[in-house]
Computed example of a mutant assay.
Amino acid sequence: MRPTSTGLRIRLRLAPGQEPADVAASAERLRHAWGVHGVYVEPVKPGVVELRLVGFDVLRRVRMPRKAGGGFLRVPVALREDATAFVRDYRAIPHELVLGATLSGKSMYLRHLITGLAAQPVALAGIDCKRGVELAPFAPRLSALATDAGQAAELLPTLVQEMEDRYDLIRARQGIAPSTPDEEITSDVWGLPESERPVPIVLFVDEVAELFLVASRKDEERRDEMVTQLIRLAQLGRAAGIYLEVCGQRFGAELGKGATMLRAQLSGRVCHRVNDEPSAKMALGDIAPEAVGAACTIAPERPGLAVVGDTSGGWSRIRTPYLSLADAAAACERTAHLVPDLPALKPFRPASLTKPRPPA
């Protein structure tokens, strides 16, 4: 038994024939019996589970734990309802879909991700078809930024070529024949020596639906090319150290050809408040159907509250703490000197890039 700032943690040894699911099924009854806000069950090892008793609604006023579990390509971005940190781990879940209506908290979630990655040896690239209003404040730390569909149509092939060059590097290092298809290469850049390993790239796509909208046949051809390139990055990018963070208000089959295939590759899902149940189903229905109802009950007066799930079927409620745009932009300016040297992305460096500050 161990007291915490939010409640109590108790470890229980299971009786013969019991399993963690038996204890989890009793969590609601235990919550009422003990008069606490929530009881959460976590397996520790075979035969032992931990009960996390939370005495109040920790998502009402978010305070991140001091030991949040960050690290390389790991960003503590929000607080779970069981008072533990939700860590966005790109090595474990390389690609993620973030959905939410206007003023639901998507931008706050994005700010925490960018500021968390800004201090790491990672290249950040962005596609923001709202003329860059969401991602332009972070320009000092971005290696590439596309602010409309035309620029995105040029940036995406460059990223695909960068991915293919990294596959060639893996082949050369491991003696794989150059004619081997990318899909048959099972290793990745993390198997390369650190001196030869290319820097990871995280691509943020804001308002992904803008890439699917077309007004003419010419635009339709460009759209098909961009979607194909996004799908290739989602399918093959992980092994090359390229990760996707795709954001939007709605993301379903009605967007057009390739939307469902792209969504299927985004194994991480974060659903903020949405305008209708079908939007919640687009985010969570295919991985955690029972989470759809929880997403539909998010109140407008609680921005930043979201339901997060993954392809394992697990889900939980999280809430992102407040981070002002000015503070996030300042963090990116302080870390501008960490922008890695990627020659392929130099033509896409934001024009508003300020002079990098030397390290303190």
Rank of each mutant, 00 (worst) to 15 (best):
K218S: 13
G258I: 02
Q235W: 13
A234I: 12
R238G: 04
G248S: 06
A259L: 05
P278V: 00
R238L: 07
A253N: 15
L230E: 02
E221K: 09
L262A: 06
A215R: 15
A264F: 14
Q229D: 04
L230W: 03
A234T: 12
G252P: 11
R238Q: 08
N275S: 12
C271I: 07
R273A: 02
L262S: 12
E245K: 11
Q235N: 14
F212T: 03
C271P: 07
E210Y: 03
Q235H: 14
R269P: 05
L230K: 01
E254N: 15
T260R: 15
C247P: 06
A259E: 00
A234F: 12
E221N: 07
V246P: 07
N275L: 09
I231C: 05
R263W: 07
G268D: 03
D219S: 09
V270S: 06
V246K: 10
T260N: 15
P278I: 05
G258D: 01
G252I: 01
G258V: 01
S216F: 13
A264Q: 14
Q229T: 02
N275D: 12
L266N: 06
H272C: 04
E220V: 05
F212D: 04
G258M: 03
D224E: 03
G241F: 13
S279D: 05
L255K: 08
F251R: 13
R273Q: 06
H272L: 12
L266R: 03
E225Q: 12
A240G: 06
L236R: 10
Q235I: 13
L213A: 15
E277W: 01
V274N: 00
G248E: 02
R263S: 09
M261I: 08
T260A: 13
E221F: 13
Q229M: 06
H272N: 07
T228L: 11
A240T: 09
R238D: 08
E221R: 12
R238H: 06
L262N: 10
C247A: 15
T228K: 08
E277F: 00
I242M: 06
Q229W: 01
G256I: 04
L230P: 02
Q265K: 07
K218M: 13
E225Y: 04
R232N: 11
G256S: 04
A253P: 14
R223S: 02
G248D: 00
S216R: 13
G258Y: 01
C271R: 04
Q265W: 05
E221T: 08
I242G: 02
E254G: 15
M261E: 11
A240E: 04
R222D: 05
A264D: 13
